[in-house]
Amino acid sequence: MPTGVAIRDVRSQLFDAAERVLLRDGAAALTSRAVTTEAGCAKGVLHRHFADFDAFLAELVLDRVGRVAERADALRAVAGSGSVVGHLTRALTDLFTPVAVAMVGLITFRDGLRARLRAAGQRGIPVLTQATAMIVEYLGAERESGRIAADADVDTLALSLIGTGHLLFAGDDGTPRAQAVRRIVASVVSGALTEPE
């Protein structure tokens, strides 16, 4: 892009470009040059908006973590209705997009990024940490509605679902069949359901 041409919504354009590079070429190929080339802008554009590349990546992760919060609100809203297994299956399928799975890999790959995220108050592995909290909240709401047993350990159930879900979606081509996701969800929560589904 020629110098002096205004770019609309620079952050969004750069974030989208970073996701494309990450998905296509992997975490090792994600550089400021790769991102700005993908976005079709000069390298200086990224550095005018972010202190350095790890600051850019931290903002990208935090932006995407915010999307998990939106999903959490929607999941909590359906507690007490429909199928618990169905809701959890959809939540995991919606959560573990190829970008989210790649983002987890990126976080574990870059020490500087993890340091920035910790400095921003993030604990554990962002995306997975927020996803676990989302499932804990949902299962807690279902426990309050009486559809999950009062003595169910929702923290352990959530960790089991997120850990297993991540492994399932990170394997092979990253697109497990809906039946496989549903089977795992049913297996994990079946002992906690007050009525079989």
Rank of each mutant, 00 (worst) to 15 (best):
M1H: 06
V5T: 10
V5D: 01
A6S: 14
A6V: 14
R8H: 11
Q13M: 12
Q13V: 14
A18I: 02
G26I: 02
L30T: 00
T31C: 00
T31I: 07
S32E: 05
R33T: 12
T36C: 01
T37F: 02
E38D: 09
A39H: 12
G44N: 13
L46G: 00
R48L: 08
H49V: 00
D52V: 14
F53W: 08
D54Q: 03
D54G: 03
L57E: 03
A58M: 01
E59I: 11
L60W: 04
V61D: 02
L62Q: 13
D63T: 15
D63A: 13
R64E: 15
V65Q: 09
G66F: 14
R67F: 05
V68F: 10
A74W: 12
A74R: 15
A79E: 03
G80S: 09
S81M: 11
S81D: 15
G82Y: 10
G82H: 11
V84M: 06
L88T: 10
L88G: 06
A91L: 11
L92Q: 05
L92Y: 03
D94P: 04
D94R: 13
L95Q: 13
L95F: 15
V101C: 00
M103G: 09
M103H: 14
V104G: 01
T108R: 10
L113P: 08
L113R: 01
R114H: 06
A115M: 12
R116G: 14
L117K: 02
A120M: 04
I125F: 07
I125S: 03
L128I: 05
A131I: 10
T132C: 07
T132F: 04
M134G: 01
I135W: 08
E137I: 10
G140E: 02
R143L: 03
E144Y: 13
E144T: 15
R147L: 01
A152I: 11
A152G: 05
V154A: 07
V154W: 06
T156H: 10
A158P: 07
L159M: 14
I162K: 11
G163A: 04
G165H: 07
L168M: 14
L168G: 08
A180Y: 05
R182V: 03
R182E: 15
A186K: 00
A186G: 06
A186T: 07
V188M: 12
S190N: 08
G191R: 03
A192W: 07
L193H: 02
P196S: 09
